[in-house]
Simulated assay, not measured.
Amino acid sequence: MTKTERHSSPLDRKLQIELLEKMAAVYPAYLNVGKIPQNNGQHVRAVIANIYYLMEHGLCIAQEFDEIGSDVHLGPPKITAKGLDFLADDGGLDAILSVVTVRFDADTLKSLLANKIDETDASEEEKTFFKKQLEALPDAALKAGTSELVKLGLVSVPNIFHWLQTLAPHV
């Protein structure tokens, strides 16, 4: 028995994309409720469930009307900037604005490199020499070498897929 067979869900990815695309077509206006696809055999409840799901992920908004002892009723939905970015092939502005910049100060980078020097099989004399060279490096030279270090580190990752999977528990 598959997961789908055990739990029947009204959520439908195809319907969600169709809803978002219809909302995007009339952006910045709200989608006319009459334009919500129901001709594909979609039950009104499934459409509402999928709009609600999109709302919970911040991809659209709609006014919610709760009536005691009744189903949830939604006003016309409207796609959000996050929803438009989701539809965009390039990730939209969110992909540009959400860039993560990692900065190491010079002392932290020097400390990491010094630890790496200590882990080598080099003689103590060589380790001392290279650590003194490292300490004498100006910050500008260290900064210039950082990109090269990242490239070398990526080349040293034998199986990028395995490495990325090890990071998944930390997300």
Rank of each mutant, 00 (worst) to 15 (best):
L97T: 12
A88L: 02
L74K: 01
A136E: 11
P138I: 05
S123G: 09
E119P: 02
F129I: 09
H73S: 11
V102K: 10
I61P: 04
D66G: 09
K82V: 12
I61C: 12
S147I: 01
S123T: 07
I96W: 09
P76W: 00
E119W: 01
F129G: 06
D105R: 05
T128R: 12
L134S: 13
S123C: 02
E56N: 15
N115S: 09
T120W: 03
V102C: 08
G91L: 11
L154G: 11
D139T: 03
L154V: 05
G145N: 14
S111W: 04
L93N: 14
T80E: 08
D66L: 09
A141W: 04
P138F: 09
V100K: 15
F65T: 06
E119K: 10
L74A: 02
L149H: 07
F86D: 04
A106P: 00
A106L: 01
C60G: 10
L113V: 08
V100W: 12
E148K: 15
L152K: 08
N115C: 05
K127M: 14
D121H: 07
E64V: 01
Q63I: 05
S70M: 07
S147L: 07
A122K: 15
A106Q: 04
S70P: 00
D85G: 03
A62Y: 04
V100E: 15
V102M: 08
V102L: 13
L97H: 15
E124K: 08
A88C: 05
A140F: 03
V72W: 02
F104S: 08
D121C: 09
K132R: 15
L137V: 01
S70F: 11
D71I: 05
F86Q: 04
F65E: 04
D85W: 02
L134R: 15
D118T: 04
D118C: 04
S147K: 13
E67V: 11
P77D: 06
V150K: 14
P76M: 00
D118R: 01
L113K: 13
C60I: 03
F130R: 14
L84W: 05
K132C: 08
K143D: 12
P76A: 12
